[in-house]
Design a protein around this nucleic acid. Structure first.
Lengths: 340, 340
DNA sequence: CCTCGGCCCTAGACCGTTCTAGGGCTAGAC
DNA sequence: GTCTAGCCCTAGAACGGTCTAGGGCCGAGG
């Protein structure tokens, strides 16, 4: 490979354009203070040299970094979707995120959240967005004392931290009403125990059933596929429910697999509704009716809050709740019917 | 929220420890040149102030950044796994990546690869790792002229670019031999057309069948679920194949859904094998037999090559091929048998 | 006793930007 | 004709680190 040449600096551009470095900076940042003639000369010189400012120096010199730190878990595909939506929010500036950079610090099996958070602080982010954080409250609190924090898709109470999350209660109500509308009268909820959001989903399910004058049937499940699988015998009994709202998609998929393995037809013998609209739910071999979170809205609100509190740190923390929507696929139908 | 205080700088630590800034730098970087007594004093002062060096300044001042840029697609869950493995490689230093940082620049629907690449260059990375890049050859070539490039999970020929990829041919051979060992004699390949890796997989399939003295049956498929679904009628005909090797998991899942919808039992009437061992394949409701890529090995080789070529740019580019492995689940069995 | 080499340590340059303070010029107001 | 306001532009400091060059000190060798 040929010797790679020294990167072009602002001084090179200034020399070629015959102006000072400061003026180049003014022109390239697009701020007022340069004559049209010089603006033209600088832009031409920058283009000719293929100049791209060194981000390290730019951020060091600037008073503000306009950088949003993002922490997400590489193992959770849905968080990838949310992060993608964060980029979209910053790019189109709809949430006031115009001109802001995003810096990703992922977590994973070998990289705990604390490491990612410190890495963000070391980059002097002006605010951080945590997607589904798992840190203890005390850690979040100490982070919040240093930088504005927005927590996404997790309810956190009693901390000086912004929260943007899906309305789990409304989602569970929506799903339950969908099953009621299909004509089900025996609807069970395979609930998530103490998992985040589980209490809200139980409440939404209960409220919908109460309003319909029906008795709730709660069955202990959990957030994983095997939770769904192991609950199958308790649901697939004669005279059992004709429809189940599972805590989440993974749990629903586990139940679905166990039902099929046990010879039950879905949705004819049992309608199953999940929660999250994960990638798994959309697979043609699964086609799970589920409750979808609005990743774009979540991301837009997160960016809006993060930017707002970076601009004005005295702003109080707030909680934003985003309504979810039902995604009807092929695991729900009228009782006894074979198609949804 | 209370006023956030000015971040601690190296000068604060130096003042508290009663030494120069340079000595603090020496101690905290762990290089020789400080007496044990001063070392102790500096460490104590840094701990007391909770000092963490500003990465922007550190990278700007240092001669080398020891930073590896990573580009990946947020929408592809498997790439997340690979990136996680990259972090593991850098953390345990097994691949010579000790002391190297990783910087993520994701791509997505609103963020094309070119943007991510430029962002990495702007941070003056010493080398970049591209996970499944989609850029045109010319773009990769111009990138490779500026910085050492390692391409992961894609075959790229004729460029000064390192390639680390799974041995697709061996994987397809492995899968085909698995079906042969189960007793199948009519094995079709739902191939991927011109998709990356498709040619190699066809070759491996063909080689295994030839060695067994059987005739190959190639059916046109593709990389998506709907490719698999639409191919179903051509495969589920009377006297058709008893087993199918699909181009990838998505294609296999599509075929699986269509087969079930058409009343065929998998694996009794048709064994299906995928490729990639994606998250979808592992779902209990899918349980797809498939060919798994070794993300840890891919990542380790990528880091090793990236670091090596960053250290010595004259090193020629090379291609590393990592052997895959078969993951037997429940979509493959002997012809006519109902369990794998 | 003087010199030399090695170890510690520091002053100050440097990295590539942004930003502040101020200078020169022109035009309009008085 | 001066004063002033405003626009352009630049020199140089600043950001917070790293790195280079060199100074002080101490012990060993001549």
């Amino acid at each position: 490979m040929s010797e790679r040449s020294r990167p072009v600096t602002i001084a090179d551009v200034a020399a070629l354009a015959g102006v000072s470095r400061a003026l180049v900076s003014i022109v390239l940042r697009g701020v007022p203070g340069a004559s049209p003639a010089n603006r033209e000369k600088v832009l031409r010189a920058a283009a000719e040299l293929d100049y791209h400012p060194d981000q390290r120096a730019r951020l060091l010199g600037a008073a503000r970094s306009r950088t949003l730190g993002v922490v997400h878990d590489l193992r959770r595909a849905y968080q990838g979707e949310v992060v993608e939506a964060l980029y979209a929010s910053v790019l189109d500036g709809a949430a006031g995120g115009d001109g802001w950079r995003l810096v990703l610090e992922p977590t994973g099996s070998r990289r705990p959240e604390a490491v990612a958070l410190q890495a963000l602080l070391d980059q002097r982010c002006e605010a951080v967005v945590l997607v589904g954080p798992t840190s203890a409250k005390a850690q979040l609190a100490s982070l919040a004392a240093r930088v504005p924090v927005v927590v996404l898709t997790r309810a956190v109470r009693g901390l000086d931290v912004d929260v943007v999350r899906t309305d789990d209660e409304a989602g569970a109500r929506l799903a339950t009403e969908h099953l009621l509308a299909l004509g089900h009268t025996r609807i069970a909820h395979l609930h998530g125990g103490r998992a985040p959001g589980a209490a809200e989903r139980r409440a939404g399910y209960g409220a919908a059933l109460r309003r319909a004058g029906l008795a709730p049937e709660l069955v202990a499940g959990g957030p994983t596929e095997s939770d769904g699988e192991s609950a199958a015998p308790r649901l697939l009994r004669p005279g059992g429910p004709t429809a189940v709202l599972a805590f989440n998609d993974a749990c629903a998929v586990g139940l679905l697999a166990a039902a099929r393995a046990g010879g039950a037809a879905v949705p004819r013998d049992l309608s199953i509704v999940g929660f999250d609209d994960s990638a798994a739910a959309a697979l043609s071999a699964v086609a799970l009716t589920t409750v979808g979170q609005d990743a774009a809205a979540l991301a837009a609100h997160a960016v809006r809050r993060a930017v707002a509190r970076a601009e004005d740190p005295r702003l109080p923390a707030s909680e934003t709740v985003v309504p979810p929507h039902l995604v009807a696929r092929r695991t729900s139908a009228a009782p006894g019917a074979s198609a949804g």
